[in-house]
Amino acid sequence: MPVAIGNYIALSSVMFFIGVAGVLLRRNPLVMLMSIELMFNAANLLFMAFARAWLANAGQVFAFLVITVAAAEAAIGLAIVVTTFRSEKNVDVDEIRLLRG
């Protein structure tokens, strides 16, 4: 069954904006990190769909690269969140505001 590329674009943009909304609206750093992962994965889905549409392998390679980098990012992100939790006993980014832009 052929599926039009537009469907993939629509799904991935929905995923992407759920991710953006998560970062903007949620206040727990862990959930914010998860939302960022969702943004990355929306891009991955798009890479895979376009790789198939163009028959270009570069898109698949890119998706693997993103998965690897996102794993490193999650590791570092969790480490930073854990050190913050240990010192602040606090899970709300609104309460973490010694520095104000």
């Binding site: 750093p29 990190l33 960022i36 891009a43 890479f47 992100g77 010694l98």
Partner: peptide
């Protein structure tokens, strides 16, 4: 606090950039 802020905001920007790349 700087590390946490930088992590969240910069990763979000990277997300935008990556989606743009896709």
């Amino acid at each position: 606090e700087a590390a946490l802020k930088y992590l969240i905001l910069s990763s979000t920007a990277t997300g935008f950039m990556l989606y743009g790349m896709a």
